[in-house]
């Protein structure tokens, strides 16, 4: 069996073909680099995506602070994670890399600040 997909690991956007059977992935073609193979593997088993959003700031110079998932999150948990992110509040000041939500929804992945806020 084959499945075709665009790799989203970088802006190049390679068109990848994955050959697979019941035992797993047999062959990956069309990728330009190694990351394409990794992408194909996770996409076939547990698709993940980086999540970026903003969290409300209390007592700061700005209304919200941008944040990202430190690692890609399972794709099917995006909206649940967004609910947690929208519930959260951050006290100013905060700086790049600060953990704003540790271990979001038990995924083991932190939501971290991607900007500074006084």
């Amino acid at each position: 069996m084959t499945k075709q997909m665009y790799c989203v690991a970088c802006p190049l956007g390679c068109f990848i073909t994955v050959e697979y059977d019941d035992t797993g992935i047999l062959n990956v073609t069309g990728n330009t680099c190694k990351r394409g193979i990794d992408y194909a593997r996770t996409e076939m088993t547990n698709p993940t995506r980086s999540l970026t959003s903003t969290i409300r700031v209390i007592g700061g110079k700005r209304a919200v602070i941008p944040c990202k998932s430190h690692e890609p999150l399972p794709k099917n948990m995006m909206f649940d994670c967004m609910k947690e992110i929208n519930k959260a509040r951050v006290k100013a000041p905060a700086k790049i890399g600060d953990v704003l939500i540790p271990d979001i929804l038990g995924t083991g992945i932190d939501i971290v600040a991607t900007d500074n806020c006084d």
Binding site: S50, T54, P66
Partner: peptide, 17 residues
């Protein structure tokens, strides 16, 4: 605030800020 910046220059995937 999305990521994808710096892959060429820093070899890392950064957000804009």
């Amino acid at each position: 605030i999305h990521t994808g910046f710096g892959l060429h220059y820093f070899k890392e995937e950064l957000s804009g800020p």
